[in-house]
Computed example of a mutant assay.
Amino acid sequence: MMNKIKTLVVAFLLISFASSAQTNDQPLKFGYTNVEYILLQMPESKQIESQLKTHSTQLEASLKQKYSEYEAKMQAYEKGASTMDKTIREDKEKELMNLNNSIQEFQRSAQTSLQQKEKSLVDPVIAKIDKAIKDVAKENNFTYVISNQALLAGPEGGDISPLVLKKLGVDPAKAQVQSEPAASKPAATTTPATPAKSNAKKKKN
């Protein structure tokens, strides 16, 4: 999800600067940066990671509670199924099936909830980075700013990341240097553990 947002931001930058260059007929000047790298250096990154971890932990706790209930009812069913009246047994089997469906639905909802939570936390920070990149590009007469992940080679002076970090109030000298920033993410989307399925075996009278 974050990579998609980053791609949209970079694409918007290219369109806006290209239009400006064509209007002002200025010499081309290229710069490059990495939105994800900048995000990782910002204080908000740790806050996002912490909030997502808390949200994920809460979802996982709810899922485990649901599965514990399912397992307890399954064990009770398997223990007494042979002596149950047919109507009671079928009712228990229906209850188990509904519980299992509820667990599967909760897992899907939990994943969606995590993605929405991540987006709500990341979007405002991406907007700040977007503005900082535009301001730096304008102040330093860069015609184009591209992602360094798509860059095969370029001059060291073309990297505007330190200038963007300064604009955001982050000291580049204290920022963690990452040669491959895309290898790590500021907030991992954790999928609640998927419980092993237990199938009720129907026993006929």
Rank of each mutant, 00 (worst) to 15 (best):
V177K: 15
V125K: 04
E71G: 00
I146Y: 00
Q178M: 15
A183G: 05
Y144M: 12
S56P: 05
V35M: 01
E60C: 08
N140K: 15
E49C: 09
K204E: 01
G80H: 03
K204S: 01
K117E: 14
A11L: 03
Q65E: 11
F12W: 07
A11V: 02
A150C: 06
Q58R: 08
G157W: 02
S56E: 12
A21E: 10
A11M: 00
K29H: 14
L40S: 08
A127P: 00
N205W: 10
A196W: 02
L8A: 08
E105F: 07
Y70H: 11
K204C: 07
L114E: 14
E95T: 12
M1I: 06
I48N: 05
P181S: 09
L168W: 10
T83F: 01
F17H: 03
K117T: 12
Q176R: 13
L63G: 07
Q149F: 00
Y67E: 15
D25G: 04
N34G: 02
D123I: 07
Q176D: 11
N140M: 14
F30G: 04
M97H: 12
V35G: 00
A76Y: 07
T189W: 04
Q116C: 01
T143H: 04
A196R: 05
K64Q: 09
T7H: 07
A193E: 03
K92F: 12
S68Q: 12
K174M: 10
A72Y: 10
S113T: 11
E180A: 11
K166N: 14
I126Y: 03
N199G: 02
M84P: 05
K117C: 00
F12M: 08
T191C: 06
K204N: 05
K202P: 02
P162N: 04
K79L: 13
K203I: 07
D91W: 04
S179W: 06
L40W: 09
M42N: 10
T23D: 09
E118K: 07
K131P: 00
T57L: 11
A110C: 10
P43N: 06
I160A: 05
P181N: 09
K29C: 07
A196C: 02
N140P: 12
S45P: 05
K119L: 12
I129L: 02
